[in-house]
Nucleic acid binder design. Sequence first.
DNA 1: CTCCTGTTTAGACGTTTTTCGAAGTAGTAC
DNA 2: GTACTACTTCGAAAAACGTCTAAACAGGAG
Lengths: 125, 125
Amino acid sequence: MTAVTIQCCAPIAREPLSETDAAELAVMLKAVADPVRLRLLSMIGSHAGGEACVCDLTDAFDLTAPTISHHLKVLRTAGLIDGERRGTWVYYRIIPEAVNKLGALFAPLTEPASSRPGELELTPA
Amino acid sequence: MTAVTIQCCAPIAREPLSETDAAELAVMLKAVADPVRLRLLSMIGSHAGGEACVCDLTDAFDLTAPTISHHLKVLRTAGLIDGERRGTWVYYRIIPEAVNKLGALFAPLTEPASSRPGELELTPA
DNA sequence: CTCCTGTTTAGACGTTTTTCGAAGTAGTAC
DNA sequence: GTACTACTTCGAAAAACGTCTAAACAGGAG
């Protein structure tokens, strides 16, 4: 599930976003536009091994487990993370293509993308 | 007004975001996490001359003028755009540093922050 | 099997957001 | 001055959101 287009749009200042692209990007941005989810994403992404257990994440907040679970679901539905159960615990990992898509959206127009070394290797699937 | 820290954070996957940084970034992301505001930002940024009149923007939507005005205010409060009245019309323009900040947040981890030239002069509070 | 821990789902409640119509402010033209 | 246009502010209604508690589900241990 969670079918998300990996690459769709030029940087925001290159040309006006279409209604469709804007709607799709807004879903992803809305997922990230919350302090708790931002921190969750950052914790998962920066965790050793590239993945983090829900149990690790829950302890870092003053929130109940269901609330954390809800936020993780929002991130997962938006296509930003993916989760997998291994035995007792569930591990989440970032989906880099999705994050790169956001990075590309806000990339500066000043220098052509070519001058940034390995900016994005992602070509649309 | 609209005092916004220009640079505060490493890419999201480098290290866990602090509670403070996450809260601050979430404000900016929330401003951008709406289809209408995304399109407004894109229209302003890609408009010839780097600025757009509210009258141009309003016509592109099926929304009333007060609603567009509200969205523009949200973007302005978040520090993403700036507006100026010249005679009869009000013109808005993007604040590139703010957009770059978002781009940096979602940038891939390939190069260490030190290799980006004089990105910014402000250190976090 | 039962019990315990980790995680998700369901439902409820208060807060925030999006939108509108109506009224207010800023500026030009007459 | 009045009249007209451009834009913003105000106040209200509906929808979406974040959080909780309670209950369900998944898996390991006894």
